[in-house]
């Protein structure tokens, strides 16, 4: 036993190509038949996600199963690079996002108080060891995770730009309303490969039209605390 172990340790250190005997630990679970070194890194990443039983088989809140959620659409694929997109990719992503956006006939601001709650809420769409139940509680916008709206509220993130006084600085013209609706629905129309989620796109609708109108009110309504600082 001792000799075998010594051989195994020594050879492992040399990263020997083949070792047929002398394993320190007997094992029934050999590696799968798939040669992972024959795949590109992209192929292997997809293989690991979809073919290795790494995810729980659950139904998703937006419909579909875990495979649907983990399958990339064209925009996600285009934005999976390290760092910022190059000019060509950025142009393609903007075009993709614009092509799929459907402008509503009219846009009205909702209730900024409800918008504040939605901006704060991080509930919704989580899956796994604890799964969010949309029947019990409506999903929120997660906006505070990344944006400062009102510096008097603690615990607002800085991944995205500060939105303090957003409406106070821009007003509530039709053009502003349309722009903000476009950005919340699919921000890639203006910020290709932004980290911000698409809240209402061809992939899925994470926030309802009404919820979006409340969040817009929180941002733009002159009465909202966002605009009174």
């Amino acid at each position: 036993m001792f000799k075998k172990n010594a051989v195994a340790a020594g050879m492992a250190a040399f990263a020997s190509v083949a070792l047929t005997a002398g394993c320190a630990v007997a094992d029934g679970s050999k590696g799968s038949d798939v040669d992972i070194t024959a795949m590109s890194a992209d192929e292997l990443a997809e293989h690991l996600i979809f073919e290795t039983d790494s995810f729980r088989d659950q139904e998703m809140q937006e419909g579909g199963d875990w495979r649907d959620r983990m399958t990339q659409d064209d925009l996600q694929k285009a934005c999976s690079m390290k760092g910022d997109p190059d000019g060509e990719t950025a142009g393609q992503v903007v075009a993709m996002a614009r092509a799929s956006y459907e402008a509503p006939e009219s846009i009205e601001l909702g209730d900024w108080r409800k918008g504040a709650e939605l901006a704060d809420s991080g509930y919704g769409y989580r899956q796994g060891h604890r799964t969010d139940d949309h029947g019990q509680r409506e999903p929120g916008g997660n906006c505070y995770n990344c944006h400062v709206f009102d510096p008097r509220v603690s615990d607002q993130g800085t991944i995205g730009p500060s939105l303090q006084n957003y409406g106070a600085n821009r007003g509530t013209s039709e053009a502003v309303l349309r722009y903000v609706h476009e950005v919340i629905s699919n921000p890639h129309q203006y910020f290709p490969c932004t980290q911000m989620p698409r809240f209402n796109s061809d992939r899925h609708q994470l926030l309802s039209d009404e919820q979006i109108s409340h969040i817009m009110a929180y941002l733009l309504d002159p009465e909202s605390p966002v605009n009174n600082q």
Binding site: M39, A41, L48, R69, Q72, L75, Q76, K77, M81, P197
Partner: peptide, 18 residues
Amino acid sequence: AMRDAGEKLFYRRGGAMD
């Protein structure tokens, strides 16, 4: 191969919120 696939996974945009 696993390290390189891990890098791809790290930068792979996906899920409900991209």
